[in-house]
């Protein structure tokens, strides 16, 4: 096959995605994940409204090991999507499009999301105990 004399779109299996591309798809994946996480929020509110025994069951599920791992995942996903969403809002306003700026804001988003998620989740776990 003749090599076409024009740019090729990146072939995803051999192309090393730049950080900005990885963060872009991560924004979408965390967004879809958080859509399911929103159902946990609703379940928690519904359990609180239903009464003490339903709430105790919900608290037990959320406090179990599996529950904590799932909740930490959602906590990180939330802060990642939130921080990266703010990055998107700055782009919408016309700021931060330079390659170096987009990379720096991307690194900042990753660091902030991890630190905030660990601090918030750690504080919560410290209060629950165990």
């Amino acid at each position: 096959m003749a090599r076409p004399d024009r740019p090729l779109s990146p072939h995803l299996q051999v192309y090393r995605l730049p950080l900005t591309a990885i963060l872009s798809i991560a924004h979408r994946i965390t967004g879809v994940g958080l859509a399911f996480g929103a159902l946990i929020l609703v379940a928690w509110l519904a359990a609180a409204a239903a009464g003490g025994s339903a709430f105790a069951t919900m608290s037990g599920l959320m406090g179990s090991w599996v529950g904590r791992i799932v909740l930490f995942g959602f906590t990180w996903a939330l802060f990642y999507h939130l921080a990266n969403g703010i990055r998107h809002l700055f782009w919408d306003a016309g700021f931060g499009y330079e390659k170096a700026d987009a990379r720096m804001s991307g690194i900042a988003v990753v660091l902030i999301s991890v630190v905030v998620a660990v601090v918030v989740f750690g504080l919560g776990c410290a209060k629950v105990g165990g």
Partner: peptide
């Protein structure tokens, strides 16, 4: 709010 409420009773 959630951090403040963590582990709180019903």
């Amino acid at each position: 709010s959630l951090v403040a409420l963590a582990g709180a009773p019903h």
